[in-house]
Each structure stands twice: as C-alpha cells, then as structure tokens.
Design a protein around this nucleic acid. Structure first.
Length: 416
RNA sequence: CGGGACGUGGUGUAACGGCUAACAUUCUCGGUUUGGGACCGAGCGAUUCCGGGUUCGAAUCCCGGCGUCCCGACCA
C-alpha cells in the first residue's frame, strides 16, 4: 500500500485524553479512532492487525476441530429467561433495546445461551458428539467504567468457542487441547515468553477453578504469582497451599507480577445444556446431558496487549505474525532516480508476494523515519541516494535495531 | 456506583473578571529543501462542551447537566 494514499494520518503528540500506552500509540499511529469512552473503531492499519490475529486464532481453532459460525448481535430474551440471565440483577452489564412493537431485545454480551439453544436443533445422538463451535463476534458490555484504552471497552471483538462433549472425561481431553492451542496462539503473536497459564477462580459461570492466560504487564489489572521455570502461575485470588500442590508449585519459587488476562477457558458442566434442553441419546437409547466448556480470547485486548508489552520509546513494535505489513519501504529524497528505484522495489516486493507499506510521501526524512518507528513494521527498507550509490538496500530490524545492507535478492530470501 | 482531576481552532497549549481569544503545529497556495519531526512568505480555521446565573462586562466566578481520564468498587 502506498502511504500517500492512506487516509489515516499519524500524530506527533500524545492525545491528552488518553493515559494508557496502548491508546496513545494506537491513536498516534492512526490505527484506531476513539468513538467514545471504551469504544474504538479500527482504521486500515489497525484492521490489518486485527485480521492477522484473527487468522492465527482461526488456524489454531480449526486445528483442534473447531467449526466456525457467526451468531447474532440481537438476542432473543426467551432463551436467556431459561437460564435466568436476562435479569439485570443477575447480569448487570446488559445493553438492551426494544422492537418498535415493544418487545425487548438483548444486545450480545456473550453467547452461551444462543449457541446452546441453536445446537438443540442439530445435536441429537452420541454419534453427533463431540462438537466444538466458535466465532469471532463483537461483545457489548455496559461497563460501569471503561478504562485502559482499548483494553477494557464497552464494545470489543472476541473469539469464543464452546465445547459440547458426552462426558466430563471427553471434555477434559479437549480442554487440555485447547489450553495447548492457546499457548501456541500467544506464542505466535509474540507474547509467548510473557504469557502464563494461570489457575484462577471461576467467577459466576462455574463453581470450580478455571484457567486464565495472563500476560505480564504493568498495564494489567490482575496480580498473579508465577513460576518461571515451570511457566505456570496462580492468580492471587486462589493462592492457597492446596492449589499450589495441585500444580506442583512451591511458594519459594513464586514471583509476584501484574498481568493482563488475554484469554480464559473454563468448564460449564451441564448448567446451560440442562437449562436449554440440550441433550443427546446414548448407545442404549437413553437421554444424557451434554458437558460444556467455554473458551475466550479478546482480540482487541490482545492487540492492545501486544502494543503494551512490545512497544519501545520510538513507538509500536509488531511481531511479523501480526504486523500490518511485513516491510515498510521508505524512500528518502524525491530525486528522480530515488523515486524510480523505490517504485521498482515496491513493484518487485508485490510481485514476490511480500506485503509492503510504501512511504512514497514527499516529506522530510526525519518525519518519515519517525513514522516508520511509530508504525512499527518488522523491517524498514530504505531507498535513498546513499543506498543507490552503494548498490544495496538498507534494512533495519525494528525490534533489534540491527541494520544490514542487502541486495533485493538477499532481502527476498528473508520471506521464503 | 463512590471519590478526584479536567473540558479553549483538527492536534498540543496560552490568556488578572476588561482591546479583535494568543502561540505552535496541522491544512491550503507559492518558493526552497531531503538520512531523524526542514526553511521562507502568504492564507484558512473558534458560538472557549451545553444550559442557566452573578456582573457594566465571563474562556475566567457560581449552579446544573453532559463528556473524558484516573483511584476504588465491579468485571461472564
């Protein structure tokens, strides 16, 4: 993409109304637009990151047998009455609206009920199970207080998967598969070293313990105790000797840290399947309850977490897996030879299938280099009088700041 | 929801109760310039968040509302 065509402009100064690092950088870089507190729109570059995160998650969910669907935002209250969760006293952060005819509707804040109710029409026999259904969908939650920029919004994109198993044992097998998939996802988006599977309390969904995936960051809302060698952690809320023993951890090896909850997985048991009448017929012709689990990752929060954790003083640092573009091609100077050479390299990169953002703007070098740092593509490739004279491109790694001088052919091999 | 801070061109700031609300930047036009937020010149851009009050006079003081951020509570 030619940067001269990109409508979203960068800003040099921090927006005064944001204090969170993720919001300051994402707004300055022109990746998001704040609509109101806790509500952020994604601009072209931000959307590209979101789509790449989505792709990573989709690949991992498909690999463990997930089937993707897209449920609705408008929700039928009848279904929710069956679990008692339409009541504002039970779920206090509903957004609701009304039909012209007067009937009340829910606006999706989660999807256990509709997915379970939908599957009543499709799951009948033990032969149909297990089934794993997931989606990428916007959730709306009427938070008392939106905060931390993009991290805790009233509207946000989430991947939610629901598992439907015949037995608790079958459920547990999948639960562990999903936990492993989650660790792969966080590793692939560049947060592997910073993210810990963490034992936590179940909240109002379930009585038992659950697992969270927590990324170490001062911007986090949680306090966890981590064992770095075992790469496991315990949330402060369930830090007991019994739980430590369960995980094979010892207090002496634990380190306290603030963290961001980037994902969670938990057993739902029969709670929703019973309430909504979802059951299956077993081999002997008897009806049996379906054992459910729920598995969530907030994509927009994950995007914000990547910014929080990996950014440096110069701006955002994207891992290659989720960067808007693999290469930021920057032409310095507007002389005809530089222009032509840069155009040619841009065309050649496209030809080679390398996604490049081409800064073809007629701006002073400092501004273009500053933007390149702020936007944070993994590789910055400079074309200038200097590089033309040397006959090689200057290639800078955004994360390590390493500078190399490569021919185009050498550069291309990086992407094979 | 309790507490606190704040609200002035697109952005960032300034202005004792008193002149045409100032400066920088962005943007437009012309010229120059190109390796770390260039230069010169000329322009455009504001109902000072909204409503009410005090006053000869309000961006400024008072009341109410709305909004934004922060702390706490809450967090499927």
């Amino acid at each position: 993409m030619r940067q001269s065509q990109l409508f979203a402009r960068t800003r040099w100064e921090d927006p005064t109304e944001e204090t969170a690092k993720n919001a300051k950088l994402l707004i300055r870089a022109g990746l998001v637009h704040k609509e109101m507190a806790g509500v952020y729109a994604f601009l072209p570059l931000g959307l590209r990151v979101l789509r790449k995160i989505e792709t990573v998650i989709r690949e991992e969910m498909n690999a463990i047998g997930g089937q993707e669907v897209l449920m609705t935002t408008l929700q039928n209250p009848e279904i929710w009455h069956k679990t008692g969760r339409f009541d504002d006293a039970v779920v206090d952060n509903w957004f609701k609206t009304k039909l012209v005819s007067g009937g009340e509707l829910g606006i999706a804040n989660t999807h256990e009920e509709p997915i379970t109710a939908m599957l009543v029409h499709h799951l009948k026999s033990y032969k149909d199970l297990p089934v794993y259904v997931y989606q990428f969908q916007t959730k709306f939650r009427n938070e008392l207080r939106a905060k931390s920029g993009i991290m805790r919004g009233r509207e946000f994109l989430m991947k939610d998967l629901y598992s439907f198993s015949r037995t608790e044992v079958e459920f547990h097998t999948f639960y562990e598969q999903c936990a492993a998939a989650y660790l792969r996802i966080f590793a692939r988006v560049g947060l592997g070293d910073h993210t810990f599977r963490t034992l936590a309390a179940g909240g109002s969904f379930t009585t038992g313990l659950t697992d969270e995936f927590q990324t170490l960051s001062e911007a986090g809302e949680d306090i966890i105790y981590i064992d770095r060698s075992k790469h496991l952690a315990v949330n402060k809320e369930v830090l007991t000797d019994e739980n430590l023993a369960r995980l094979g951890l010892e207090r002496a090896n634990l380190e306290e840290a603030k963290s961001i909850e980037v994902g969670n997985i938990f057993p739902l048991g029969h709670r929703y399947s019973d309430a909504l009448g979802l059951k299956y017929r077993d081999e002997s012709g008897l009806d049996q309850p379906i054992y459910m689990g729920s598995y969530g990752i907030g994509l927009s929060r994950l995007l914000g977490t990547i910014v929080e954790v990996l950014a440096d003083d110069g701006g955002i640092v994207w891992p290659a897996s989720v960067a808007p573009f693999a290469v930021h091609l920057v032409a310095l100077g507007s002389s005809e030879p530089v222009r032509q050479a840069a155009d040619q390299i841009y065309a050649d990169l496209s030809q080679a299938g390398v996604e490049a953002l081409f800064d073809d703007r007629d701006l002073p070098a400092g501004e273009k280099l500053g933007d390149a740092d702020l936007l944070g593509m993994p590789l910055r490739v400079i074309v200038s009088e200097k590089t033309l004279a040397a006959g090689k491109l200057e290639v800078k790694n955004r994360q390590t700041a390493e500078i190399r001088h490569l021919t185009f052919a050498e550069l291309i091999t990086e992407f094979k």
